[in-house]
């Protein structure tokens, strides 16, 4: 991808709010290791995690944008878009452990968190690398900006 800073941020927020929420809605009832926690609490927690990924992500995008400046092509290879799940996932996981994420109803077990996080990340990554261009024909030529 060849994003601009605002394009990155807009794309992240848009895809988390659409694809991210859709995947969350589908996957939460089948997350592993959640025991007898209430489904409503699980949903509330999953949405809080999603919101954390979005908010922290805006800060991350500044970091990626700065790193991208060292690349001649000013591009962000597809692989980077996938691998950044490691740093971002670890940060959210650490903040969960520190109980620093607001709105969390039940502290999720590792299996549940990572299943949810990976599913959302993969879906967003896949959509951003192709299907996104089907409804939004101007998106890729505007550095990922939707408005």
């Amino acid at each position: 991808m060849v994003p601009t800073l605002f394009g990155r941020i807009q794309t992240r927020l848009f895809l988390l709010a659409t694809v991210g929420l859709a995947v969350t809605a589908l996957i939460v009832p089948v997350l592993p290791g959640t025991g007898d926690a209430e489904l409503a609490d699980l949903y509330r927690t999953a949405v809080a995690v999603l919101a954390a990924v979005a908010v922290l992500g805006v800060a991350w995008e500044f970091v990626y944008h700065a790193l991208m400046q060292f690349r001649w092509e000013k591009d962000w290879p597809t692989l980077f878009g996938l691998l950044t799940l490691i740093n971002e996932g670890l940060l959210v996981w650490a903040l969960l452990a520190l109980e620093a994420i607001p709105g969390v109803a039940v502290n999720p077990p590792a299996a549940a968190f990572w299943t949810h996080f990976l599913a959302v990340w993969l879906a967003v990554w896949l959509v951003a690398n192709g299907p996104m261009r089907v409804p939004f024909i101007r998106w890729r030529f505007r550095g990922g900006r939707l408005v």
Partner: peptide, 9 residues
């Protein structure tokens, strides 16, 4: 450079 087709450049 790739970003002429949509990115920064």
């Amino acid at each position: 450079p790739k970003s002429v087709w949509g990115g920064q450049l």
